[in-house]
Write a protein that binds this DNA or RNA. Structure first.
Lengths: 233, 233
DNA sequence: AGGGTTATTATGTGCACACATAAAAGCGAT
DNA sequence: ATCGCTTTTATGTGTGCACATAATAACCCT
């Protein structure tokens, strides 16, 4: 008989995880309610609540008021990616970071850009193209549109030394954003910049961030072949 | 004077977000401690704690005991990806899901597989190759290795109708795993299976899952061009 | 001044209790 | 049986308190 007590929420969580892995509680099963578990574990209900809530957040449990808590039938693997500043990413690999501004201009963007950013088609936007390097080797090509009516300070920033990637994080807060990962073939111009064969398979990160209703910036990062975005689940 | 009260943790969170966003609290700034905020907001310290803890989890605040809570200097965008069962992903797009088993065998894997999975090189593993289709069009190619000593039941499963992707989720729990996203050029064989030109840029998801110390399965999913993995931040 | 010990302090957590809320289950009238 | 109302129940959350813990700040001794 297991009369062990689990007095803190991490241990309760561990025990619940153990039961799920040991298949004592099968996917889809309804598990005992918080009050009963609290008695069994010899702790307060709020402790059990904290443990179960945390497991529900990570997708391992499904909880519904009155219906109770059940083991997720098909646990959705939730991978949390840390999209860091590119400089940090490179430096963490122990490489020397390099940055090169390719172009910077104030122009009316193509329609698909103004459309996505929901700005007036004729409104001029700050357009920045730059290259990030690791140990002098091209690492990622950055193409960015910045909405100057939301980030006016960007107009007085040259982005010659400091990448827009980094400058915006400090100076342009955002409320939310969309991000998409995909794979694209390198167009000739980009292939040349990244110094890779044309039509190479590049890893692309597209990001569009918003400050409440207004779009802040739209960026497309194209990573040289070999790039891998890793995380744990 | 703002004498409004914020009685629940979501509203406290909203107010803190508003202040960060309105730049009342700048990146790097130390914010008032929980007790003071509780007084200001007219709620209990635990309510403030819950709100701040949640914001720290999402990377917007940095908290350290005794040192206090400060606004993250460079908020790391944490994108949470839901790696769902491929069938669900396709059906959610309103497309018809199709599945085709290409090969299934029990063989000793190449060294880089047994190496990554930390199994004996000569130990036979279940090797499954399959194709996922959306509206009869190739969607993703799945190449998988399953460790039969961890999932013996897999040996009696043919994977003719039900994909290993789905079967394993139900029958093989895992404790943790690594996942990597990258971009690769389609090799001729894969290009033919996916019915795309050779050297097309494919989106790749590599996943290796573990049950405690033992590797469960290693899978490589190659998505046809056009695939985008989306999420919000 | 320097180095090591102690005190202080902000966050982290646990507990008991209360009430809120969503949703299933039961019930009753038609 | 079906629709609509009420009850029940499990989770969700707020409060006040206590103590734990980590890390800084203060102190003391040399």
């Amino acid at each position: 008989m297991n009369t062990q007590t689990f007095r803190n929420w991490q241990r309760v969580q561990e025990e619940v995880l153990r039961r799920i892995h040991a298949r004592e509680w099968l996917p889809g099963d309804l598990i005992p309610n918080e009050a009963d578990l609290a008695i069994e574990f010899g702790c307060a209900r709020s402790t059990v609540n904290r443990a179960l809530r945390s497991l529900a957040d990570s997708g391992l449990l499904d909880r519904r008021r009155k219906a109770g808590t059940r083991v997720a039938a098909e646990p959705v693997a939730k991978a949390t990616l840390n999209i860091a500043v590119i400089r940090h990413e490179i430096e963490e690999h122990g490489a020397r970071y390099g940055y090169m501004l390719i172009a910077r201009s104030l122009v009316a963007p193509p329609l698909h850009i103004s459309g996505a950013m929901q700005t007036q088609p004729m409104q001029e936007m700050l357009h920045v193209r730059a290259l990030h390097l690791a140990d002098e080797t091209p690492y990622a090509f950055e193409e960015r549109w910045v909405n100057p009516s939301v980030v006016p300070d960007a107009l007085s920033e040259g982005f010659e030394k400091l990448s827009a990637n980094e400058w915006l994080l400090k100076h342009a807060p955002y409320t939310h954003g969309d991000i998409a990962f995909s794979s694209v073939q390198a167009e000739p111009e980009v292939a040349e910049i990244l110094d890779v064969p044309p039509h190479s398979a590049l890893f692309a990160i597209d990001r569009l961030t918003w400050d409440n209703q207004a779009s802040v910036t739209k960026v497309c990062l194209l990573f040289a072949p070999g790039y891998k975005l890793r995380t744990q689940i």
